[in-house]
């Protein structure tokens, strides 16, 4: 199942693992992404912690964790190719995977439909 946060992170939950990235909307808003500061594997995070930073030429945006867990994998391809987020924010441009997650927290997030409606309120 896929969920979204108000800060424009997406989270895809498969089994007890969650993959996290930023939405296509957020990627487009940021413009050309120049650098991604990734979390470290084994970092423990709670909801709202900073998972990393996404930078464009004139902005730096924190990526907040939409869920509690432990970082089990980071997308190291972003180190050499941060533009991957512009090309494919919700697939190849994922940022990290979390294990040890608390699925109950997912209830606070938005479904893809709800997120689409939320985006309309921002326009």
């Amino acid at each position: 199942m896929k969920y979204y946060s108000e800060e424009h992170e997406w989270i895809l939950v498969e089994d007890d693992e969650a993959t996290i990235g930023i939405s296509e909307y957020a990627a487009a808003e940021l413009g050309d992404i120049t650098y991604v500061e990734l979390p470290m594997e084994d970092d423990d995070v709670i909801v709202g912690d900073t998972l990393g930073v996404i930078e464009s030429v004139k902005a730096a945006s924190d990526v907040y964790s939409p869920i509690t867990g432990t970082v089990i994998e980071v997308n190291s391809e972003l180190e050499d190719n941060p533009g991957l987020i512009n090309e494919s924010a919700e697939k190849a441009g994922w940022i990290c995977k979390l294990g040890n997650i608390d699925v109950a927290e997912l209830d606070d997030l938005m479904t893809p439909d709800a997120y689409a409606k939320y985006l309309k309120t921002l326009a």
Binding site: T34, Y35, E55, S56, V57, K58, A59, A60
Partner: peptide, 12 residues
């Protein structure tokens, strides 16, 4: 690399 600097990142 201006995102390191005060005019963009302010207190961070």
């Amino acid at each position: 690399l201006q995102t390191r600097e005060q005019h963009i990142r302010r207190e961070s």
